[in-house]
Design a protein around this nucleic acid. Sequence first.
DNA 1: TGGCAATGTTTAATCGTTTAAACAAAAATA
DNA 2: TATTTTTGTTTAAACGATTAAACATTGCCA
Lengths: 334, 334
Amino acid sequence: MKKKPGLKDIAQEAGVSTALVSYVLNNKKEGRINKDLAQKIKQIARSLNYRTNQIARSLKTNRTHTIGLIVADISNNFSSSLARIIEDEADHHGYTVLFGSSDENDAKFERILDTLVTRQVDGLIMAPPENTENQVRILQQQQVPFVLFDRYYPGFQCNYVALDNFGAVYKGVTHLINKNRKKIGLITYRSSLFHLQERVRGYVEALNDNGIGFNPERLKEVDIIYRKTEIETAIDDLLFHKDPVDAIIFGSNSIALNGLKHILKRNISVPDALEIVSFDETDAQDLFNASMTFLRQPMLEMGQTATRILLDQMNKSKTPQEIILQAEMIHVER
Amino acid sequence: MKKKPGLKDIAQEAGVSTALVSYVLNNKKEGRINKDLAQKIKQIARSLNYRTNQIARSLKTNRTHTIGLIVADISNNFSSSLARIIEDEADHHGYTVLFGSSDENDAKFERILDTLVTRQVDGLIMAPPENTENQVRILQQQQVPFVLFDRYYPGFQCNYVALDNFGAVYKGVTHLINKNRKKIGLITYRSSLFHLQERVRGYVEALNDNGIGFNPERLKEVDIIYRKTEIETAIDDLLFHKDPVDAIIFGSNSIALNGLKHILKRNISVPDALEIVSFDETDAQDLFNASMTFLRQPMLEMGQTATRILLDQMNKSKTPQEIILQAEMIHVER
DNA sequence: TGGCAATGTTTAATCGTTTAAACAAAAATA
DNA sequence: TATTTTTGTTTAAACGATTAAACATTGCCA
């Protein structure tokens, strides 16, 4: 890579000091600088195709104008949609995004976190996997600004923006019961992550509150990095049972996708034989040609809020913002 | 944000110079340094939770170990899948990824490019939108290492990894003709981008080579940032015509998704009344419960090859690599 | 005419690393 | 013992920007 032109090169060509060039290009000391000279300097900068060396600037100013984003997997629709929203919001404020995918793996999460902090990101937005609370606490002690999204640790005061998972599932179950379904299965992730526990709690509590009672055989938990067969088995267990379910709630877009595929293969009639409620409406699911209900997460709000809180904290440290958003229940009739 | 510990802090605590600390932490001059002292320094570093300031290091070494990625839209499955592959490949070599979405807009592309170069990325992987050839030429003149993916400019020697779009569509059309379909529609993007032109060429040529002849009414081009209705209109035009098509080729996963939705709505029987060939198999399309054919892009190879070429060029500048990959035609029977 | 303010530009320190070169002390060699 | 070599560590100059402070020069007013 050829050596790039620097302030020095411009200064030399203009016969002035680098300081002056810096002032001109940053529009500082506007009143004081000779207008013609300023024009000339800008002209030379343009002709040399000069671009600020942001690395050098960052070293001096202690600001990189970069934010770090740690998602579970950028290739997943949930993560990439959020990434896009965050990118736009960050961009509006002059920030660029460095990202990494944790694969729900704590060691990888730590590594990425380290890499990003090392690169002096001004702040972080992240969805921490299991067993990372300690890392995040250390981050907080070091006063690196960050906002969690999607997940958080109960009793750990810090910025986060997450869904009311309890409420979402509760709403879903209640909806199904109102549709006269009483044998409701839930396929979600097996995890100690609080927000996922909340789903199970919402499921159990909604059943109890409606006098149905929780049947453990209808709660199917798959690994957070699941194999397709896990979901297929779960569905088969729920359906080809002496007392089969008449409704299933899917815990994520990806579970829903694989679940629906399998339901298609098994030739189950939806919604007659089986009502479906799914987290995370994605437009892909529209291809499944049957009525179903979605628990839509307010992605835009989640992404924008997370970014705004972060930008806020980066400027003036304020008290932690703990934001819980509600899922919207959408019924799609077909 | 609290001030982070630096080499200076470690040096002070250990009663040595920062140079020595640097040597120890980077495992340089291994033979010469007192082992006990080295241990002590490492110990102190750990206890202070020291992390290299990569910004300072980059300024000195002129390497950021960051690569820039410009995609059309990170929230689109094609972009995010590639991003993930690139992330992994980069990560294996100690690189992190800074990204931006161009929205197929040349001005935005330029802005992102500028931002990334300014941040001294060591190299770039990008899918340039229309009217950006000049920018990319300037980049080449400045000897910033880069690799284009998905697209390239004919007659412009530079690194790229792209699909044989001509061949892919040609293969698709031929396949349909072999299935005895003679009235084949193509819905693709209206664009001066070479790789998209190639598709049209493949379509026309395959028709001609099979003695069918090109009927312009069956070629539907939608804006690259299309509205859903454009695709719906295109499909209606093709189907509810005095001489309706008996097959449609979709030019991307997103066109296919919206197209299939509409076909579903119109209640067209696939594949009896209408054979479908679609670019970019995504697992979402499996929800469309009918046999269809995919022109699958070798995503993994594309992403890995692009990254490897880039890493290669960053180390020792070599002659431009121009790689054309073949699409794989997959028939899914349902 | 002398003093002060306003204007325009430069000097020089700094950010936190890296690294060649210098240096000091100990060990090996003559 | 004098000299050289080896070992262990420090000095100091970068990297490319920012920015407070210093320095000229000019204009203004009493």
